[in-house]
């Protein structure tokens, strides 16, 4: 399952979600402001506190809104 670490007032997070919606990709939203465990997991994955972070396998991830990288990771 595709995971998107994000928070509500983050415009780049919303762009990632909208892009996935437009491609018909299902994903789980992990809100790093509302959920401390998600925040910790995201920081552990990336070593940073920035979002959006998109991951499929909890190892490889994409930070930020980058269509080309998202397409490559998800094989779109």
């Amino acid at each position: 399952m595709v995971k998107v670490y994000s928070f509500e007032a983050c415009p780049w997070c919303n762009k990632v979600k909208k892009y996935l919606d437009s491609k018909g990709v299902e994903y789980e939203v992990h809100d790093v402001e509302l959920n401390a465990e998600d925040a910790a997991a995201c920081e552990k994955l990336t070593g940073d506190t920035a979002v959006p972070v998109l991951t499929v396998d909890d190892k490889n991830y994409i930070l930020g809104f980058d269509k080309a990288k998202i397409d490559a990771l998800l094989g779109l």
Binding site: E33, A50, V51, G64, F65
Partner: peptide, 19 residues
């Protein structure tokens, strides 16, 4: 909000929460 200046090339496409 939503008025980040510059083109997409110059602007970081991520945010930091205030946690």
């Amino acid at each position: 909000a939503g008025q980040e200046p510059g083109s997409n090339d110059e602007v970081q496409t991520f945010c930091r929460a205030n946690y």
